[in-house]
Write a protein that binds this DNA or RNA. Structure first.
Lengths: 123, 123
DNA sequence: GCTTGACCTTGAGAGGCTCCAGGTTGGTAG
DNA sequence: CTACCAACCTGGAGCCTCTCAAGGTCAAGC
């Protein structure tokens, strides 16, 4: 498939995909006879993985490292495994950020409500 | 209190606080006779709110809008309320991102494990 | 043969920090 | 008293991650 379809399937934009390629985050993107990029189901999977990692805060540098390991072959699986495991831990940190924000918002909204009540009570 | 203490309490860096002030995200930061910024418990609360919003994806532009409303006084509370409510909805979107990433990671780790098993079986 | 649409590359610009150089001030040690 | 140090200040450069615009190529359809 071509870049437009790949973009739609993985949820990244066309520009971002090209940017990631330039940055070395994609393991070789073959081109058709027309010079245009061709993507397979696996490369879309890879993009989805990258997108997930990125959206949840992994840096491009770390993703580049991950991609480099991938290119080196299966003997790097233990290390890649480690990277993903460590990132999975980051997810709980992120969740805690969300929880904390939720608490702050709830509190803030409550104080707004209180003020509304007080205002009404004044008249 | 001074900026170092405020930074420690709200979890932002000193640089970020100054940056936010320049960007108009802080409702007036008074200075002492020495020309240095002074923060109160409330301004720390404000910084915590900003930090929470930022960490969970609100843009600085939106936060600037929020700050501008705040400066206009209590009659903007309904609108500020709306902004926070809408952001609270964003939190669930973020949570879904985390869930999706978790699923992707789990799947990926499983395939690594499978390969390990297969490799061992080959010999 | 001309237009249209999907792709291409290169490079600039935007958003959100982060860091650095160089300067001021206030308190403490000698 | 003076010298020094820590904590602050400002302005501006640099970095990361996109995002967009300009200008070019190519294939297909009218």
């Amino acid at each position: 498939m071509r870049i437009a379809e790949a973009a739609e399937r993985c949820g990244l934009t066309i520009d971002t995909i090209r940017y990631y390629e330039r940055a070395g985050l994609l393991p070789q993107v073959p081109r058709g006879a027309d010079g245009k990029r061709r993507f397979t189901a696996e490369s879309v999977d890879w993009l989805i993985l990258l997108g997930s990692l990125r959206k949840t805060g992994m840096s491009m540098k770390a993703m580049a490292r991950f991609a480099a390991l991938y290119r080196k072959g299966d003997q790097t699986i233990p290390e890649r495994r480690e990277i993903l495991l460590r990132h999975a831990e980051q997810l709980s940190v992120k969740r805690r950020d969300l929880d904390r924000c939720e608490a702050v918002l709830t509190y803030k909204l409550e104080t707004y409500d209180l003020r509304e009540v007080n205002k009404k009570a004044e008249y």
